Amino acid sequence: MSAPRNSRLHEPSSRRLRLVYDGECPMCRRYVRWQRIREEVGELELIDARQESEARRELTAMDVDLDQGFALQVGERWYHGSEALHRLSLLGTRSGVFNRLMYRLFASPGRTARLYPLLKKCRSALLKTLGKGPIDNLDRK
């Protein structure tokens, strides 16, 4: 007997999913802790941008400034900033108040692009208040 044609829909994806975020930012840490990815999408690997890692080296080589936003890898493609937030909201579940709210806010790429600068300003102000420096993965002075 052969497997049903749609049986692959229930198998976890083998696509690589990595999220590089600021581990020193309480807002960022809370977001990644509460964000839930749909099971069929796969497992999301969380990587602190302030720690040395393969992902950080890869992004630095691509000239991606991690102080300007987190980065999401889906398969072989990297998304940065508002694009990463938009993609992450599409990959997320719709269960729970937080995930439903994130989907409603960031499912539209245009709305996400408009809101993202405000989120970056909030992050910068929070880090400054906490006395935390920039990630500075590009070593720009």
Rank of each mutant, 00 (worst) to 15 (best):
R18E: 14
R16M: 08
G42S: 06
R114H: 11
F106D: 04
L59M: 10
L90G: 03
R36L: 01
R30G: 12
G92L: 05
L72Y: 04
R111T: 14
Y79K: 09
Y21P: 12
E11T: 07
R16N: 08
E58N: 06
R57C: 05
L88G: 05
G42Q: 03
P109V: 03
F70V: 00
Y79W: 14
E45G: 00
S7K: 09
R94K: 09
E52I: 02
L91Q: 01
L115E: 11
R30K: 12
R104I: 00
T60I: 02
L115S: 13
S14Q: 14
S7V: 15
L101W: 06
K120N: 08
T60Q: 14
E39T: 05
G42W: 00
L9H: 06
L90N: 04
P26Q: 04
L90F: 02
E83Y: 10
Y116N: 08
F106T: 05
N6H: 09
L9S: 03
R123S: 11
P12C: 01
E24R: 09
A113M: 03
S53Q: 05
R57I: 05
F70P: 11
L9Y: 05
E54N: 08
G81H: 06
A61S: 11
E39K: 07
E39S: 09
G23Y: 07
V74R: 06
C28A: 10
H86I: 10
L19A: 11
R123K: 14
M102F: 09
R56L: 15
L118K: 13
G92M: 07
G110H: 05
E83G: 12
S82H: 15
G75Q: 04
E39L: 04
G96E: 01
R100Q: 13
Y79A: 11
T93N: 00
R100G: 11
C28M: 06
Q68G: 14
V32P: 04
L115R: 15
L85Y: 07
A71W: 11
E83R: 15
G92S: 15
A55S: 13
E58Q: 12
R111S: 11
R104G: 10
E83Q: 15
A107M: 03
G96L: 01
V64N: 05
S89H: 01
D65P: 05
R38A: 00
V97D: 00
E40D: 13
R50H: 07
L19Y: 15
V32G: 03
L19E: 09
Y116W: 14
L44M: 11
G69M: 08
F98N: 02
E39Q: 05
L44D: 10
E58L: 04
S108N: 15
P26H: 05
G75T: 06
E24F: 12
E76W: 08
P26F: 07
A84I: 07
E24A: 15
V97I: 12
R33H: 06
Q51H: 06
P117V: 05
R94D: 00
V41I: 14
L46N: 03
F98G: 00
N99P: 03
H10M: 07
S124E: 14
V64C: 08
R16W: 02
L72K: 06
S124N: 12
V64T: 03
R29C: 15
V97M: 07
